[in-house]
């Protein structure tokens, strides 16, 4: 399938100084789930605001389904859906009324509107909630309704800004299922932002790691993880006067070893990327012990997206 979103050098500068988005170029294919992975304040939402026509780029451009965000905003509005990070609903009305309200702004009316509203209520299993005031809903039900309102116009592309922010794990898994179903059954292209690694790992085909308004790495999720190779051995050292020296010394000794693929300093010590974690662990211990280096802890884990993030940004995303 072809490319449906292509952004080139999107930049947003606020008040002439603050660069919220600093030259983002990204390409999303029709039918995929694409993710922006990055911490809060990294420019994910601002990029979304430009792509969904809410905000004009300071410079740069993007083409969405053949339409230019700088010229054809009205055309783009018809074919996209946008789910925001906040509540995004009229709390003083019922769920059904909220859906109708959005439907009418898309100029859907009469029988067609009723049909679409019923369809969405059924799809998101909101039957028992639809006629209650939204203010009485739980967070999970609200989010389901909110996503439903952004689908009223049968969009080709759905933008989900932090879809499961602040929701508990059960609700998140449930929302992931809906997202995947929308993508698979109806072929909706989904572009989401998240700072949850599991979410990016579970849902996305491709993702872009974004930090301080820039994309630091783009790629297929599996490929990105493979790039990290095998396992991660995390060493931490006691925070005393020898801390920096220990890190430097260990790095020097270990760099020559054949099992080592990569090595990165962390806040508390070192991360060693190795092929075979289980058999390497004793070797590492022996080498360090032989050189008189004391470690505080040693742990072994499979490489995750967090390590991908760490490798490319020097920071951990985990919150």
């Amino acid at each position: 399938m072809g490319e449906i979103i292509r952004a080139e050098n999107l930049t947003k500068v606020y008040s002439g100084k603050f660069k919220a988005v600093d030259g983002i170029s990204v390409s999303v294919n029709e039918g995929e789930i694409f993710g922006f992975l990055g911490p809060n304040g990294s420019g994910k939402t601002t990029t979304f605001r430009m792509l969904t026509t809410l905000s004009k780029p300071t410079s740069g451009s993007a083409i969405i389904a053949g339409y230019d965000i700088n010229k054809d905003a009205r055309k783009i509005k018809q074919i996209i859906g946008y789910s925001c990070q906040q509540v995004g609903l009229d709390l003083k009305s019922t769920g059904r009324y909220n859906l109708q309200l959005f439907g009418r702004y898309y100029h859907v009316a009469g029988k067609e509107l009723k049909k679409r509203v019923d369809e969405l209520i059924e799809l998101f299993e909101l039957e028992s909630h639809a006629d209650r005031l939204v203010g009485t809903y739980s967070g999970g039900i609200r989010k389901k309704l909110e996503i439903a309102t952004s689908l009223i116009n049968r969009p080709r592309i759905l933008f989900l800004d932090e879809p499961t922010l602040g929701l508990d794990i059960k609700v998140r898994v449930n929302l992931w299922d809906y997202t995947q179903e929308l993508n698979k059954k109806d072929g909706v292209t989904i572009f989401l932002t998240t700072h949850y690694l599991e979410e990016a790992e579970k849902l996305c085909n491709n993702l872009a790691i974004i930090e301080s308004g820039r994309i630091v790495k783009t790629g297929n999720v599996e490929e990105l993880k493979n790039e990290i190779h095998g396992d991660v051995v995390s060493l931490t050292f006691f925070k005393n006067e020898k801390f920096a020296e220990c890190i430097e010394h260990s790095r020097q000794i270990l760099s020559g070893e054949s099992f080592l693929m990569d090595i990165k300093a962390t806040e508390k010590g070192l991360n060693l990327y190795v092929k075979e974690g289980a058999s390497t662990l004793p070797k590492i211990l022996k080498i360090l012990d032989g050189c008189g280096i004391t470690i505080e802890t040693i742990s072994l884990a499979k490489a995750s997206l967090d390590d991908v993030f760490l490798k490319h940004t020097g920071n951990r995303i985990s919150v």
Binding site: R49, V87, G88, L89, F102, Y105, Y106
Partner: peptide
Amino acid sequence: SGLLDKFLVTPA
């Protein structure tokens, strides 16, 4: 509440 943004994404 983010409602206004959602309205503004519609063609209204």
